[in-house]
């Protein structure tokens, strides 16, 4: 049952992606991307990643869609996308995709409890979360305690990206020196 739900959701996600590729309207693509992200969140729930699903639903369907629409409001919302000639890119992506699928045959099956990724260090985290840290949510204890440096780095990246946007777009206050072009 779980596998059927997984198949159906993933096939739907691929359909959204193809729709985004084919769509010429930029506004439509932005809205479809919001739906795509919410759909992604559903898949994360099926794959047991509830914390990730939470974040993806709030970020993908909420904030990043709002930011793309905000950019469209500045650059003009009625833009149509032009595509260049598609034959060579189609060949390139087709070849890379085929190579990746060929490579995936050697990967451990999805859900294999004995896959290398599931055997190294992770059992220690799950056990230690109960004994050393004492909180039930293993994701929180790995995020905040076992990999605290990692998270500090990520928060710094977020802060720096915010500072970068403020440098590029100003602090939202009108500048006296900036004349309207005309």
């Amino acid at each position: 049952m779980e596998a059927i739900v997984d198949f159906a959701l993933l096939a739907g996600l691929a359909a959204w992606a193809v729709a985004i590729v084919r769509l010429r309207s930029l506004f439509g693509a932005a809205m479809l991307f919001g739906i795509y992200s919410l759909h992604c969140a559903l898949i994360f729930v099926v794959l047991d990643a509830v914390d990730v699903a939470f974040t993806e639903a709030a970020v993908g369907a909420g904030i990043s869609t709002v930011l793309i629409l905000g950019t469209l409001a500045i650059t003009g919302i009625k833009l149509e996308v032009r595509h260049t000639r598609a034959l060579i890119p189609l060949l390139i992506t087709g070849t890379i995709g085929a190579a990746l699928i060929y490579a995936s045959v050697d990967m451990p099956l999805v859900g294999d409890p004995n896959a290398p990724a599931n055997l190294h260090i992770v059992p220690d985290y799950i056990e230690g979360s109960a004994t050393e840290i004492g909180i039930p949510n293993v994701v929180t204890s790995v995020l905040a305690s076992y990999r605290g440096y990692d998270t500090l780095g990520e928060v710094t990246v977020i802060f720096t990206a915010g500072v970068g946007v403020l440098c590029l777009l100003g602090r939202g206050k009108p500048k006296r020196s900036r004349k309207p072009r005309g």
Binding site: V52, V59, L143
Partner: peptide, 25 residues
């Protein structure tokens, strides 16, 4: 399920939106 990829991706999503915003800027 393995919590380690969840941790990596959880932070990557939020970093991703911040870098997307930088690109849009």
């Amino acid at each position: 399920s393995n919590p380690l990829p969840h941790v990596l991706i959880l932070t990557a999503i939020v970093v991703g939106v911040a870098t997307t915003a930088l690109g849009l800027a």
